[in-house]
Nucleic acid binder design. Structure first.
Lengths: 172, 172
DNA sequence: TATTGTTATACTCTATAACTATA
DNA sequence: TATAGTTATAGAGTATAACAATA
C-alpha cells in the first residue's frame, strides 16, 4: 500500500529510515543475566570473536586453542601426543587432525622418540618459533583490548575468580 | 619380564602400583596462566562439563545453549526465528537444525504468523513449559555448584567483571 | 527489491571404537 | 596385555551461498 507523503507533523528522521521495520521488539532475557554460566558464555564468545579479529586484521590465522597448543609444545619440547592431549583436556584422537594442520603449515614436527618408538616427540620448527613470537605479540594486544574496561587489579581478581570456578566445577 | 619380589628397601606403595609409568612430566604452561582468555576458556570448559553432568545425572539432556534458547522463547512468545537468532548471536541458518531438534522433542512449536506469513511465531508447548521448569531447577543446582568456591559477593563481582569484558571485547 | 526461513555444503571440535605398531 | 598414534565414523556448532515464499 502506498504511503501518503508524510505530513509535516511526522517525525522527519523516522520518515527517512530505509525500511522502517517492526520496532525490533526488546528481548526479555528473564533469569539469564543472573547466571554465572550465561555471563561466562557471553563474555567468552565476544573474547573469541576479538581474538579472531585481531589475528585476521594482522593477516594471520590462529585459534585460541592452537595458540595454547603451540605454547605448550614450545615450553615442553619432546612432549608426546598423549601428554599434550591430557594437558589440553582433549582426547588423543581429537588432537591428530589439529597437529596435522599445524604440521602442514610448517609450524610443528613429530619426531620419532628414540626411547619409546610408540610415541612422537613434538617440537616447533624454526618457522614455528618465529610464528609463535608474532602470535604472542598479537595475543598480548588482544588481551589488552579485552581487559581495557578493567583495572590491573580487577583483571587479577577476575583471573582468580575464574580459577576458583574452574576448581569448583571440576570437584566431584 | 618377571619383576623380582620387591626387596624390603623398595618403597612399598610404589612397588604395588599397576603400571609404574614414566614419571608423567610436569607441564610448563608458560605465560598461559597470566592470560584472561586462557582462564576464561578453562573455566568455561569445566563449567560446560558440569552442566552436562548435572543434566545427565538427572536423566535429562540439554546444552547451555538450548537452555538459553528455551528461556528466550518462553519469555518472548511469538518471537520470530530471525529475532531469536539475533538475540542468540548466531546465523539464522544455524538456528534451523537446533529448532528442528527441540521441536522433534515436542518442547517447542513453529506457528505461522498471521501478520507476516514469512515469519514463524515460536512458542513452547505445554511439555516444553514443564520441561523448562525442571531444567531451571537443574540449572540452579549447577550454578550453586560452580559458584561453591565463591562468596555471594564474589559471584556478583565475577558476573560484573565478565560483563565488562564482554563490553570491551565487542567495542570497535 | 528486501526479508524470512530453508537447504546444500563445508569446516571445526568433539568423542567412541577399532586398527597398527610397539612395549 | 597395555599403550601410542591413527583411522573411520558420527554428532553438534558454526558459517556462506542460493532458493522459494512473501512483503
Amino acid at each position: 500500500m502506498a504511503r501518503p507523503p508524510a505530513p509535516s507533523t511526522a517525525k522527519p528522521s523516522a520518515a527517512l529510515l530505509p525500511a522502517a521495520r517492526p520496532p525490533a521488539r526488546r528481548i526479555d532475557r528473564g533469569m539469564l543475566p543472573t547466571l554465572l554460566g550465561y555471563a561466562m558464555r557471553r563474555a567468552q564468545s565476544a573474547v573469541f570473536a576479538d581474538f579472531a579479529a585481531t589475528f585476521t586484521q594482522a593477516g594471520e590465522a590462529l585459534t585460541p586453542g592452537e595458540f595454547g597448543l603451540l605454547v605448550l609444545v614450545e615450553r615442553n619440547t619432546g612432549l608426546s601426543q598423549m601428554a599434550l592431549a591430557r594437558a589440553l583436556g582433549i582426547d588423543r584422537s581429537t588432537l591428530v587432525p589439529i597437529l596435522d594442520r599445524l604440521q602442514a603449515r610448517g609450524l610443528l614436527v613429530r619426531h620419532r622418540s628414540p626411547t619409546d618408538a610408540r610415541t612422537h616427540a613434538l617440537g616447533l620448527t624454526a618457522d614455528g618459533e618465529a610464528a609463535l613470537a608474532r602470535f604472542t605479540r598479537l595475543v598480548k594486544a588482544h588481551e589488552k583490548h579485552i581487559a581495557s574496561g578493567l583495572s590491573a587489579s580487577e583483571t587479577r581478581t577476575l583471573i582468580e575468580l575464574l580459577e576458583k570456578v574452574h576448581a569448583a566445577a571440576r570437584s566431584l
